[in-house]
Amino acid sequence: MKFSATECLLELYEEKLELEDYQSGVPRWCNGCGDNAILTAIQRLCRDEGLRPEKTVFVSGIGCSSRFPHYMKTYGFHGIHGRAFPVAEGVKMARPDLTVFVNTGDGDCCSIGAAHWIHAIRYNMNLTVFLHDNQIYGLTKKQASPTSPIGTRSNTTPRGSYLDALNPLTVTLGVANASFVAQAVDWIPESLFEIVKAAYHHKGFSFVRILQRCPEWLPKLHEADMQEPDSVQLLHHENALQLSPGLSKVYKNQLRHDPLDMNRAREIASSTDVVPVGILYQNREIPCYEDTRRSTVLRTSDTVRKGFEAELDKYSV
């Protein structure tokens, strides 16, 4: 129910929250870890959008990245390995009024949780998902993950890994109902923040793969990309992100890309010579599962009890 004048008056009393209001504890991540940049970008988002802490939930699985909810002064659910998506979907289904974020890692999402990941894309529920992709298992001290580049030497692959890395972008773009796919890198904070913001504003399953440095176990992985600005290709379009003058000055390698062009998005996602950064695909027309399944029946204690009893009666002897 909308109340024009009343609503305006009530908004006068809204509290303005600061960055500190969303910070909780000192992150236990290593110094120089890219997770810190992601944390900062998301805390900025919460502050700038005025998200109410009691209306915001961060759901995670297991891994370095999944410690994320501990560092947010909001609701959080540090779940079980690979199952961040089902938990988040349940939260959203029961409480569509909450803003739900998912923080997951390359192991959590692309290995043990891969099945949930694929179906979460297809369900297209209104969740904002950050895949902290450092391309290594860091918490357990260096084992190869599905996204580790071929030849990565680790405790489980001492002679170098044998398989080509899985590309989370092409996988997501290949699943039915994909509605928002973007890639960010933790070392360009401005673009990271803009992408995080766009993902939050997209209604649907917003999937952001963030290339994240692991200074402890793979310190050399992104060194070249960071030192050579042209190795990063910034995507821009009037229907997606626009580049600020400051950013354009440093990153000259730019590409105009229509986020509705799926075929082109898949091509860009597959590129190996540059690191594409920006929105690869966005389709605002795909319905959200929670909307198509929304019931108009009020959940009174009576209806809940009747529903339970009807279900249980099926098994009574």
Binding site: N31, N36, W187, P189
Partner: peptide, 9 residues
């Protein structure tokens, strides 16, 4: 500053 990735170093 705008390029800082908040890594705490």
């Amino acid at each position: 500053t705008p390029r800082c990735s908040s890594c705490n170093e």
